[in-house]
Design a protein around this nucleic acid. Structure first.
Lengths: 216, 216
DNA sequence: CACCCAGCGATTGCCAACAATCCTGCCGAC
DNA sequence: GTCGGCAGGATTGTTGGCAATCGCTGGGTG
């Protein structure tokens, strides 16, 4: 979008936020970001503007920017939007996926199964995101992919919290296995249904109270 | 978002673009915008940044900003995303609409019918947008409403082009009448189906070659 | 003791000038 | 006559500094 410096700042901040190094509510002081990233204040400022536009960061006039706090209600609303959009992507992917992509998808599913078996939840959470990215690529629908990507970026924290619940990864993996199968079978209807079902399950899980700790 | 000046610039530009005063491809020269709007260059610059983030404007480094040209293919892809999102909004609206809102919706439908009867297509096109806004309000789903609003903003030109086709407004009005009926009847299923059907019709119409002139 | 308010450091917001880049028109060479 | 390239003007991008605002601290007062 902007200068290389701005892109750098954007990348660093986005990663720091999604990795949790800068948790929701964290104050983004411009001078600190300048020192951290090593670019000019203008670049930092523009990068923050971009993240505000994406909904990852909130800015209050004269009071600075903070990493946006996404409540459980908002997380549900965001996922409600994702339900049909991921369905759309899954359907398009089933229609358009190449053999090479299909193989890659199945291999990825294997990696995910291994991660669940070994109990590496951090990794599994990241692999889920990559799976969605693979489906979005295969769908060749940049607009839906962009929308879904932005929505998902706001949910990283909730998704990770979700994967911490006992039994949840197994359920999740089952749904995603169905999704991958439907896509590699080139069955658009089944793929769309699998994607929607899976995310509806996410909504249900989000609606239930978290076993440990509150919504934050 | 930003200073009042920036908001002013954003509002003026957005309106100019959606009204067609600045057609797709139009070059947004910063100095001109400063003279036109009467705010500082920084404010214009930030406003343009915001519009770029919304997808209304395209910026090429060192070459300035232009009103984004949305091809027919992109318009279809955008509408494909709108199909299920408007469906979601329609369903939520049917669940949550108040009596006052329902009356307002029906009154609006009356205005639309009158506009079609009188052949005022410009007005009808605008009324359609307002109808969607009313539905979005009633749905109380700010996230979906925001997504749909941004998508729709990119389509104003195509939607107007569409309404110029002979017979199209009648078809459109019929579909929207069904939608309004389902919502005021508090029938979520039917509302969702009506919204989706209507937009699928839009996709079909967009796919057919335009009778006069090309895709632009 | 609690409350209020003035002063101060920290932080953000804005502007004007400067630097970098691009487009246009013109000149010369082949 | 056409192509290459080189100023000159126009436009965008960036930097540094200044103004505005905020939150906090400390002193004064009821």
């Amino acid at each position: 979008m902007g200068s290389p410096d701005q892109q750098t700042a954007e990348r660093v901040l986005r990663q720091a936020i999604s990795r949790g190094d800068m948790p929701p509510g964290y104050r983004l002081v411009e001078a600190e970001m300048v020192a951290l990233i090593g670019v000019s204040r203008s670049a930092v400022r523009l990068a923050i503007d971009a993240l505000v536009a994406e909904g990852l960061v909130e800015r209050i006039r004269n009071k600075g920017a903070r990493v946006r706090v996404v409540s459980t209600e908002e997380a549900i609303a965001i996922t409600e939007c994702r339900v049909p959009l991921e369905g759309l992507l899954a359907r398009k992917a089933a229609e358009r996926i190449t053999d090479a992509e299909a193989e890659r998808l199945q291999a990825h599913l294997g990696t995910m199964t291994a991660a669940v078996d070994s109990g590496d939840l951090q990794k599994y959470s990241e692999l889920i995101r990559q799976l969605y990215a693979l489906v979005a690529d295969a769908a060749r629908h940049p607009i839906a992919a962009d929308l879904v990507g932005r929505l998902q970026a706001q949910l990283v924290r909730h998704q990770f919290q979700l994967s911490l619940r006992p039994g949840r990864p197994r359920v999740s993996l089952g749904g995603l296995t169905d999704l991958v199968r439907a896509i590699v079978d080139r069955d658009p209807e089944r793929a769309e249904a699998a994607a929607s079902d899976h995310l509806r399950g996410v909504i249900t899980a989000l609606s239930e109270p978290s076993p440990s700790g509150g919504a934050a």
